[in-house]
Simulated assay, not measured.
Amino acid sequence: MPETRAVAAAVEALRKATVEGDGAVLRRLFTDEVSFGHSNGKIDRKADLLATLDGKVAFRSIVQSDQVIEVVGANAVVRHVFDGERLRPDGGVNVNHLTVLQVWVKQGGDWRLLARHASTLAA
């Protein structure tokens, strides 16, 4: 159970850093090889994610629910529902209702995101 709590803390840190545009935290949470799949099929790598999120408030809010974490050795699989309000450059807001799968790996004693994939959920 301690590892499950540590993974949950890393997932929460990622959510918070994404909302706040905290690039320093995001750099620590992403593996160098991170593969970040969006619900529209786009895949971002670490540099892409940091260029999009670092220092920017891209989301007004993110709420994650129905989270399930399974730790398998030095790996963890996380599934949750993601409800977010993403700010558009024109000042509008896009609402996201997604199901998300994340794969975390333990590196140097810390849990870091290796992969993420999102799919749109029907309203």
Rank of each mutant, 00 (worst) to 15 (best):
66 D>A: 10
44 D>F: 13
60 R>Q: 12
85 E>L: 14
90 D>R: 02
2 P>G: 07
9 A>G: 09
40 N>T: 08
59 F>C: 13
28 R>C: 08
123 A>H: 10
11 V>E: 15
108 G>D: 06
34 V>R: 10
90 D>L: 02
19 V>W: 06
97 H>S: 10
121 L>P: 01
115 A>T: 12
82 F>Y: 07
122 A>G: 08
118 A>L: 09
59 F>W: 15
30 F>M: 05
73 G>N: 07
51 A>P: 08
60 R>T: 07
26 L>S: 00
16 K>N: 09
118 A>V: 02
100 V>L: 05
15 R>N: 15
115 A>Q: 12
28 R>G: 01
25 V>Y: 00
30 F>G: 00
8 A>Q: 12
5 R>C: 04
26 L>R: 00
82 F>E: 06
64 Q>H: 03
93 V>R: 13
73 G>F: 03
85 E>F: 14
4 T>N: 12
74 A>D: 12
28 R>L: 02
119 S>T: 14
7 V>E: 11
108 G>M: 03
32 D>G: 08
27 R>P: 07
47 A>M: 15
11 V>Q: 15
58 A>V: 13
1 M>H: 06
7 V>G: 07
100 V>Q: 06
86 R>P: 01
123 A>N: 04
42 K>D: 11
80 H>C: 13
49 L>G: 13
112 R>G: 06
82 F>G: 03
12 E>K: 06
91 G>L: 08
84 G>D: 05
102 Q>A: 10
87 L>I: 09
62 I>H: 11
71 V>Y: 03
2 P>E: 15
66 D>F: 08
49 L>D: 14
21 G>F: 14
90 D>S: 04
64 Q>I: 08
73 G>P: 09
102 Q>P: 00
107 Q>G: 02
38 H>V: 00
55 G>V: 13
27 R>G: 09
103 V>K: 04
71 V>F: 03
78 V>K: 02
6 A>L: 07
89 P>E: 06
69 I>E: 09
70 E>V: 12
35 S>K: 08
60 R>F: 05
7 V>T: 07
22 D>V: 12
43 I>F: 00
57 V>R: 08
5 R>M: 05
27 R>I: 14
61 S>D: 04
69 I>R: 04
29 L>Y: 04
24 A>W: 04
86 R>Y: 06
36 F>D: 00
107 Q>L: 11
95 V>H: 14
